[in-house]
Design a binder for these strands. Structure first.
Lengths: 254, 254
DNA sequence: TTCAGCATTTCGAAATCTCGAACGGCGACT
DNA sequence: AGTCGCCGTTCGAGATTTCGAAATGCTGAA
């Protein structure tokens, strides 16, 4: 299942590497970039000119940057997900009511991808932003999604993306994960107790389509200090399940 | 200035073509796509496998699609613009107060790119969405931006992107455009009277940084019937200039 | 004016992509 | 069941392209 390209187009991969490195470096000059990638600057230059011509990269003075062309395609990909527009108001409400950060995540290519995130009044700064990719096993959201996929799919996800530790508490064992998923199915929600980020707790629940497939998951996250276990399993779980239910109805009847 | 790549990396361009076509077709099977591009399916297949491996494309059943990886890069590019987060609340307020559609646009690579758009109560469906690229000469927003660029830059934009007609009313002559830009500078706002879309009117104004450079433009758009000229030059112009002023202050002091 | 640093261009060798053809899986129709 | 046809995938030889060292050109500093 580890979908590897048999006849890979290496040039394309190199171009993509250049774009990704540009992003990591938050913009860079030609030589910096070529040094970092350990490529001759002529090669990098050729790729960059091509990417510029196609509008995927731009040049501020002598600094190359990732362009907004990606936003065009990215927004298109986001809006193809019916759940996005329908869940947004509920996420906003969750954030407002709880004061914390509320999120919407979907699965794609065996990754978890945030589609939306909203900050409540007491929200602490987090590294979550739309488009962010995360491992499914290390968040409450991801665990909710895994809990509603077939065993085969879960295996495939583990195979392709692994179970890397993000913190000391991350579940890194396939059997332990299977047990956790059982618990999630029973409870109806998942908790992430500092499994992705130290000091952060999170409660999530799955959102299913009419036909019973998971189409995403929603959550509320906050600092451990503001999220005692009884608050999670009490008020937050209830609010969350209610919101998920509203979203499911909207998805079914629209 | 017509930046053309001297040693273009054609393979990369082909990959990008494939992604863009995939988007145009809203997902496609291998053969459909290969037919449309007039390429052997093995070539298309190689590109698609590579793009899939890198996560920029995904496969639903047998249908290839643009993936959310683009959202990650796109949101990054959007958030690099300071004006984005700062202007968003003002755009929301404009939309709420006017009931129409309010927008934020920036210039990039000689295109106008929408960063945000908000629908008010009476808003009609439009083709505007974040990431959308438009010609600068055919919108009120674009004209505001051009009005605050140097003559040289304006020439460069015309040279690179042309002045194609979008409707019967589009300004397609460089001299006429120069006159219009003079008027915009004098008035402090620009009007688009069905110049981009038939039946749509729009009023926009520039947002400038402390140092006096344009960093974007904001606007309100609606159907011609709901946007009589006196409403535009009266209430809407005033609201718009006020909002631009607030944004400029935020940008300067944060 | 010279120099240094960097971006850009050149050009031949070498690696890569392209493309036609063959393979194999799947479902429809007989 | 069997056959046919469609489509996605694999393969390999040939053609094109990319790569990369070095030369050139540009810009700003000394």
């Amino acid at each position: 299942m580890a979908r590897e390209a048999k006849n890979p187009v290496k040039t394309t991969r190199r171009s993509l590497d250049i774009v990704e490195t540009l992003r990591e470096m938050d913009g860079a000059r030609l030589t910096e970039l070529a040094d970092r990638l350990d490529l001759p600057n002529s090669t990098v230059h050729n790729h960059l000119s091509t990417l510029m011509e196609a509008d995927y990269v731009l040049k501020d003075d002598d600094v190359y940057r990732v362009s907004l062309r990606f936003l065009d395609l990215g927004e298109y990909a986001r809006n193809r997900r019916k759940i996005y527009e329908l869940a947004k108001p509920e996420i906003e409400e969750l954030a407002a009511e709880t004061g914390e950060v509320a999120n919407l995540l979907v699965e794609e290519n065996d990754w978890g991808v945030y589609l939306w995130s909203s900050k409540g009044e007491n929200a602490v700064p987090l590294d979550i932003h739309p488009g962010k990719h995360v491992h499914l096993h290390a968040t409450s959201l991801g665990k909710c999604i895994l809990a509603h996929l077939s065993d085969k799919r879960v295996e495939a996800v583990i195979e392709r993306r692994g179970l890397p530790a993000q913190t000391d508490s991350t579940i890194t064992d396939a059997d332990a994960l299977a047990d956790e998923l059982d618990a999630v199915r029973e409870q109806g929600y998942a908790i992430d107790d500092e499994e992705r980020l130290p000091g952060m707790r999170c409660i999530g629940t799955a959102v299913k389509s009419e036909s019973g497939n998971v189409i995403g998951a929603i959550s509320v996250s906050g600092p451990t200090s503001a999220m005692p276990m009884d608050r999670l399993t009490d008020t937050l779980a209830e609010k969350l399940l209610g919101a998920a239910n509203v979203i499911e109805l909207k998805v079914a009847y629209s």
